[in-house]
Design a protein around this nucleic acid. Structure first.
Length: 197
DNA sequence: CAATAGATCATCT
DNA sequence: GATGATCTATTGC
């Protein structure tokens, strides 16, 4: 696999991420998360916004931890949750504006050796992603996202986000309709629509 | 099935 | 010192 013509498509560049967080979250569905020889197809995401979104880390403002969220788009934000699991986010919006997309579930594609990359804490474990990737540029290097040459046209289901206490009604969770690899399907559905590809 | 408890620690108050 | 964008095992119906 070469960087331009690999079987998993072209690497998503900075401009893909420098857009409204919700757009990025929806458009990431169907793309491939690739770390070394491991790869998975993104089938579930959540958008986390800025100061107005009390569920987002960025709502606390600029702190040592949240610095990446206020930085340039196309970087990884990885943090430890519940002392035990690590969550992978991709920073969106232009530099200076916070916003990120939590990757919640992957469909296994390569190198995962039977581990089910479903759920934010499990997929990082399966993909070998950890806090060492915090701040890493995902438009180049060993951790990247690729868009397939001919993306499958899918239905996108929109629901409230999972596992949060604030803003728990905001419809900011997106998943590929019908995928077996979604963390929880039985949530009340806000909307079903189609993606652009 | 659904509901609950426990593990475990960086971050912020 | 409390909290939390989780997961697993266990209990209870």
């Amino acid at each position: 696999m070469r960087s331009s013509g690999g079987s998993w498509g072209r690497i998503l560049g900075r401009s893909f991420y420098a857009r409204p967080t919700v757009e990025v979250a929806r458009d990431l569905l169907g793309c491939y998360l690739v770390h070394g020889t491991r790869a998975g197809r993104i089938v579930e995401t959540e958008a986390y916004l800025g100061l107005e979104d009390r569920a987002a880390h960025a709502s606390r403002g600029l702190t040592p931890r949240t610095g990446v969220l206020f930085g340039p788009p196309g970087h990884a934000y990885v943090y430890l949750i519940y002392g035990m699991y690590e969550c992978l986010n991709l920073v969106a919006e232009p530099a200076g504006t916070p916003g990120c997309v939590l990757i919640r579930a992957l469909e296994p594609v390569a190198g995962l050796d039977g581990e089910r990359p479903v759920g934010p804490g499990r997929l990082t474990r399966a993909m070998g992603i950890s806090r060492r990737h915090n701040g890493a540029d995902v438009t180049q290097g060993d951790l990247v996202v690729r868009r397939p040459p001919h993306p499958e046209r899918v239905r996108i289901v929109t629901t409230p986000r999972i596992g949060i206490t604030h803003c728990s009604d905001w419809p900011l969770r997106f998943f590929v309709d019908g995928s077996r690899f979604v963390s929880r399907v039985s949530t009340r559905i806000a909307e079903i629509s189609r993606n652009a590809e």
